[in-house]
Structures are given as structure tokens and as C-alpha cells.
Amino acid sequence: MDVAHFETIQLLCGYRQNKTQITVPKSIINITIQKPTLVAVIGKNGTGKTTLLKTLAGLLKPLNGSILINNKQFSELSIKEKSYWISFLPSYNNKIPYIRLNEYIVLGRKHYEWNHKNEQDSLNDLLRKVSLESKAHLFLTQLSDGEMQRAAIARTLARQTPIMMFDEPLAHLDPKQQICILELFKNYTHNLNKIIIFSTHLTDLILSYAHKIWLITENEVIDKIPEQIIIDHDLENNELKIAIKPWQQKSSHFRGCVRLVGDGLAYTYTKYALHRFGINTLCNKIPAFSVIIMQVSNQSHRWLVKKENSIIREFNNLEKLIGYLIDIL
């Protein structure tokens, strides 16, 4: 089965609650995907990323409008038929007790078609792709949250449905694994002709991986390629990219003053740290103590405390230096 055409027409998602409708995302959604694509859904908390994914996956009934797969009404299919087309991974996956990782990946596989030639090979292959091959025989409860997340992703990929949806698949993952999973997704779209739609908050990272971005804002769903998003400053306009506050935080009053000698990164951040703890480095009169930063090797530094041309203490740790300075000043 291949998807040639995935389309939403006048789709309105949301919940019904005591006869009132709560629409999230707020706007009508008209989206068309015609070829294998990696789509990233981004947006602020509560704008409806999860609701949109669940509706597209057929887990929630749309409030209005329709979803078409190969020009067929998706909502008219039975739950079992839907499961042949779309798989969905929720953002939270509990670690089922007394189930091993290799059992979990193929759990319930009798129920849907497991269309791999050799079960054991494809299982090992999947585990290797999410770098969990050494943990195949562990119980899920023995995995960390990040490992469990990868296991759940592998389980969804194992189903090989034409369309796969992931709600926050990159949560709990370390930076290296985030990139691994994105590469894997890209691989599945390129080599296996899958449509993959996932939501995330890692807006900077996914710009260079996703083919398409769906940005959900308060009043519309922006559907653009990543380059267009950057050119149009959409992330900044929708508060998805926030400028980081500068490091320097000057203490309002200083307890004392030292002369700081050094250069480079070590100098800059020693200065910031001293300022943060109320020790000034820009003095009006000649200070009694001076701190000299010495580079010992490429990665290690030493801080020497000098009083009247003689070294009185030596530190290899900034925190201890500051503790000492606070005592003597």
C-alpha cells in the first residue's frame, strides 16, 4: 500500500464538552501531501498539535470537514482498516511491566500485517537503528525514559504503515539520539516512501531535517517549507524563537574588588562568575588581591590568588576560588 494523496478538506479539530465545541487548532485546516514527506508540526503549548495529530490519525472525530486518503473518506474506514494506513505514537508511553524490549517491538503483531521477510532480522535491524540492540532482552521497566522513547518509536516504525504520526518523538532524547531519530525518519521517507508527521518543540533542530513545517498559530496553520519559514521570520513572530538573555548579570553592590589577569574564554567567564557573586573586577583603587588565570593544558586552567607579588593560594576549580575570595574580602 502506498499513499499517493493525503488531504484534509475544511478540517476542524477539537473536543466536544457539554454541548460546547472547543476548537484546537482554532482555524480550518486544508493541507495536501502528495509524495513521501517528513512534516514537523510546531507551535506553542496548547495550540493543538496533539489534537491535530490525533484527528489525522483517526483517534478523534473531526468536528467538521474530512480527511481523504487516496481520495477515500478516512472516517468511513473501520478501526482495523484505519490501522493499515496510519500508525500513531502518543507522547507518553508507559513501561509495561514484565514485557521485554524485543517482545514490545513486535507486541500484538499478529493483529496487523507484519510484512517483513525475516522477523528476527528485521527486529535486530530496527533495534540497531535506534541503538538498543544491546538491550533487547531487558524488561521495559529497566530502560531509561529516553531508551523507552526510542523503543516506542521503533515499535511504531515496525508497523510499516504508509503514514506514521509521532507526538513529540524527540522528548527525553539526548542531542545525538535526536539527530539519529531525525535521520531515521528522513530515511523512511526517502527509501520506504513513507509520510511521517511529528510534533516537536525543537524548532532550530528540525528546520534542517523536515521537508515541510506546519506552524500552528493562534489564528492559522502555516504550511511552508523550512527555508520560507526562516525568510518570513515566522518563528520569531510566533514566539517560537526567544533571544537568550545575555550572560552578564552585575550584582547591584559589590563586596570587594580584585584584579583579574587572563585572556580568552576562561577570562570572560571567570569575570561573569565573580560579578555574579558580588566581586568586582573593575576597581577604582589598586586592589589588595589579584587573580591570575593560567592555562595548564588545552582544557584545564588554574587560578592563582596573589597578594603583594606572592602567590597565597592556587585553585583548579572556579567555585572553590570564589568561596575563598568571599571569605577573605
Binding site: L59, S83, Y84, F88, G108
Partner: peptide
């Protein structure tokens, strides 16, 4: 959700 998405 996973069960439903798997066709149960």
C-alpha cells in the same frame, strides 16, 4: 491510543 491505532 496505541491500542486503537493498532486496530483494537
Amino acid at each position: 491510543e496505541q491500542a486503537k491505532s493498532a486496530g483494537v
